[in-house]
Nucleic acid binder design. Sequence first.
DNA 1: GACCGATGTGTAACTGGTTACGGATGCTAG
DNA 2: CTAGCATCCGTAACCAGTTACACATCGGTC
Lengths: 372, 372
Amino acid sequence: MLAGSTLDKDLFGRSTEQKYGSGNTLTYLEVLRVATAYEVAQHAGVSVGTVSRYLNQNGYVAAKTAGRIRAAIEELGYVPNGAARSLTTKRTGLIGFVVSDLRNPFTAELADAIQERANEGGSCVVLYGTNGDEERTVRGIAALRGHNIDGLIVTPPESPKINRAVTSAADAGIPVVLIGMTLDRPAGDRVSTDTYQGAGAALEHLAGLGHRRIGFVGARDQAQGRRRAYEDSLTRLGLVSDPRLCVLTELTRKGGLQAADALLDLPDPPTAIFAANDVMALGVYEAAYRRGTHIPSQLSVVGFDDIDLASHAAPPLTTVAQPKRQMGIEAMRLLESRLNDLTQFDPRDLRLNCRLVLRESTAPPPGEESQR
Amino acid sequence: MLAGSTLDKDLFGRSTEQKYGSGNTLTYLEVLRVATAYEVAQHAGVSVGTVSRYLNQNGYVAAKTAGRIRAAIEELGYVPNGAARSLTTKRTGLIGFVVSDLRNPFTAELADAIQERANEGGSCVVLYGTNGDEERTVRGIAALRGHNIDGLIVTPPESPKINRAVTSAADAGIPVVLIGMTLDRPAGDRVSTDTYQGAGAALEHLAGLGHRRIGFVGARDQAQGRRRAYEDSLTRLGLVSDPRLCVLTELTRKGGLQAADALLDLPDPPTAIFAANDVMALGVYEAAYRRGTHIPSQLSVVGFDDIDLASHAAPPLTTVAQPKRQMGIEAMRLLESRLNDLTQFDPRDLRLNCRLVLRESTAPPPGEESQR
DNA sequence: GACCGATGTGTAACTGGTTACGGATGCTAG
DNA sequence: CTAGCATCCGTAACCAGTTACACATCGGTC
């Protein structure tokens, strides 16, 4: 109703037409139209410039004027148009997040941390799910660029094509943070965990329990570090190194199940299995459960990630924990720092440590009563 | 390097200056500058209008011209500026998603489905996490509006304040879909599951096994339907109705643990517990585990949601499954339909059915050998 | 009383697209 | 030969803000 009255006279008695010029009157009358800064200005009896200065707290605005503007904003339910704003400011307050699979608790936690930190800084996170698909990852990066994101956070997979897309975004001046990726010459900052160290700790633990034949289940393209750590640890710890003990499928429960089946069907099956992630480890659980193999007395299992699920599995899963939340927060921090100073050129590489969480899925191999 | 050559002459031998006017030459020389449609136009020897028409496939563009534009876009690595575009088109291709907690596998699955469907339609999802906080939910809706989202999807919690924010968004012409919320007079479309039916099925199952004292663990503000269904089912099935059997904490594992502790500490503890969600049910598991109460022989547990975790718990959790993925897809569908026809006024209410998934966490109460 | 800096506000150019409009061209039909 | 239509493309206004600049006012100082 107050909005209606402004159609005649504003606070200073000037008619709408006089100040705003005619021609816009029609659109101004439209229903369901969201208010613009011009309308707020009219309503408060000032000019757009002043409204803008008030909103951005730069330049001078008299206290009395500010009050009138505040009231006008309130009354009209004015929300600044982000598109128009970002056109001149070159900032959208949007952070792009290219993520493989949100259903994976690891990435979900990551996304949550990133989003929380972004929100605190007044930004929002734009998602693009790739399902681990190369083509979709590339498309996602392009799509996000079209939305003028201020920064980009990318999770695996990686490939030459994806590298190119990432580099191209970085070249266009978009700060990029890669999470857990192993690009040789990174196009942006990087946050990762020392999976090599983490996986090494897992293998040491198993070796310490007396295991000699330790299997590995992982994926072809991903988790390279974990696999390398597995192989290196085998030789370092003097364990059996048998190519058949390393089965690569995909990073899903099903993948873990199939891989475990393959391992347990070997004439000389491993007494312990190290999985490249917890989800696969649970697939190993399922394979063991199906064939009546008891964990940990007949088979030890170690996972990677320490997802929420791990502690609730039966038995609770011994696993290598990554500081998921911290990774997300650090990724946003790196982004923020670059946004505040666009002249930084040195790519940073933040490597966080993993921690082995001992639960109940590991024990000495069958037939040994030994150590620990 | 080709970009450099255009500074002198374009394909038609006209100099850059002549066509584009002077004054812009300097900015054109800037490093790290992303190309604009004007630059593409220059490069291809056409005008901006033509470039725009080419991009949007409306109006006429000769095949030869299109080819030149395509080449120019390719060479300059041009990506249209979404902000500028949306300024006139009133569309951003962004869908706002206000979500309580991404770490909850239920909402994660929801988010994933929404995001996938949105991507297919060429949109992206903008996240805002609220952690179940009222204030943050309101702030999130406002923040997303500032980003000119085309549509808004909201998950609980709900409150009068949140209602107002949602209604205000809807009044501003933003299509809204509520997921799993129970607003009396909805401001937008709604997708929900018949939790009443689902919870009823769970209670029937427990009653069928012979349970008479069945506890409920839930949260104060949320999952009203489940609680009401619990209470109604008690009377309908002629079970013990005792206010002490209904404990309300929060929808987390910890909440479930505390609530279960309270129930099991009763002088006359329940023989079965129905949890408002699976995460709480796992808290119940933990409470039982800590005091050595065996599930299901000494205590039956039924959850709600059928998160991934449920089937992997020890023992696998009997739970009420919601069609999570379908809910997300339907939500996006409703949004899309409204976006294609903004004149629809009737709010729609999609109610999907729940399904009771029988696993191994339920059994007849101790001391009974009876039914089924 | 003239000068000065601090404070407050309006004007208009600018951001990077879209699109209505109109002019130019080419082809066909009368 | 020309009217008429389809095709093609450039011009300029417009979207909703931001911001440099100019101008106005005011209190205080010499």
